[in-house]
Design a protein around this nucleic acid. Sequence first.
DNA 1: GCTTGTGAAACCGTTCACAGCG
DNA 2: CGCTGTGAACGGTTTCACAAGC
Lengths: 231, 231
Amino acid sequence: MSEQGEFAVSPSIGGRHREIPEASVARLPVYLRALSGLAEAGHVTVSSEGLASAAGVNSAKVRKDLSHLGSYGTRGVGYEVDELVHHISNALGLTQRWSVVLVGVGNLGHALAGYGGFATRGFRIAGLVDADPSRVGEQVAGLTVRGIDELSEVVRTGDVSIGVIATPAGAAQEVCDLLVEAGVTSILNFAPTVLQVPDGVDLRKVDLALELQILSFHENRKSGVPAAMSS
Amino acid sequence: MSEQGEFAVSPSIGGRHREIPEASVARLPVYLRALSGLAEAGHVTVSSEGLASAAGVNSAKVRKDLSHLGSYGTRGVGYEVDELVHHISNALGLTQRWSVVLVGVGNLGHALAGYGGFATRGFRIAGLVDADPSRVGEQVAGLTVRGIDELSEVVRTGDVSIGVIATPAGAAQEVCDLLVEAGVTSILNFAPTVLQVPDGVDLRKVDLALELQILSFHENRKSGVPAAMSS
DNA sequence: GCTTGTGAAACCGTTCACAGCG
DNA sequence: CGCTGTGAACGGTTTCACAAGC
């Protein structure tokens, strides 16, 4: 992964700085949402403190995160809301609309297909695919479910670069392989299983039961520690 | 390194080892799932290397994580699958069945209510609640949807300690407050908004659009840094 | 031989605290 | 003055590498 060639071009013309840390990237969408709220509420500028409390983090984190995008704040004043929205959207690549294919139209797939948050945040569902022949042809969220054999075509004609897997665990790796083969380079996996992807393909996962199990751990802690009569 | 040797006397009561790091806790459910698969495939023991590849991590991490639970491996051999399942389940507090209340029975709520992974992993949905009067009384996944005004009663009679929020963003904080007031001490939030909870209440969030936006960032990176940017 | 368990090192992310600047 | 931007300190996590032990 040693990226060859230092960024000798345009050192400071408001362009990119060094790589943005992953932890920062994960917070940018949260800032974006918070800024939408602030804009709607009529705020023109916002301080790191103000944005921090709207985003549920602390102000030092906000400043550090935003500093990775460049210096877009005004000392003594804060950040201009609109400008910040623009810069964050730009950094996240949200100025273009990404096309998504959703595989697996069961309970969860239905919910995802109907989830408004995708469309409003710049994602277009280019196709719904399911392996179950009895589901093919069904209308879901205004789209016709297509067969798994059409996946490759959907990806190519729809210019899809992101795949969402909402199949049962047993089918997920196979679907994942098909997605990669069709040219998808980012995958969001909702199936409760570990997926293998080649280098160059980004993979993220959302595991519903896992989250509950983590909460279970903390519940157990809370109920299990008998106040340890300490000191 | 353990400065005192308290061995497995009573695995059900608190007084475990030192605190397990949060990052380790988050991987334990993954190990658990991997171990289920290994057990089904007939494996009686597994090495850290074997478990690592099944769980999608590296072996050093597995050993470090498991060492926080105690010394349950055999040098030169590995870990006994069944024993490890037991110890991890115990550490996660999964030997008891936790009751969950699900608030918001829209698209996503339906999917969550119907998701088999909860039941099979030791969680019981004690109640479904929705603020929309037209949904109250509806049967979903074998349960009757109840009104938001009954939330407190559901929590108390069902011995609920975990709440899942699957409402629109605008309603989430209000629902969250009601859950806390009713005595819930862990909350899993699916609504795309930042929630405020008092100390002592654990909060985790799952944000579907956020995950896609993170993928968008990486897609954008991969598609070559565009030389031209709008201002 | 083999694999675990663990100090130590390297790495990453967060927080502090203040210089710099509008 | 107030607030940003950032070096430096801090704390948590991952990885290394090897001694301990079956």
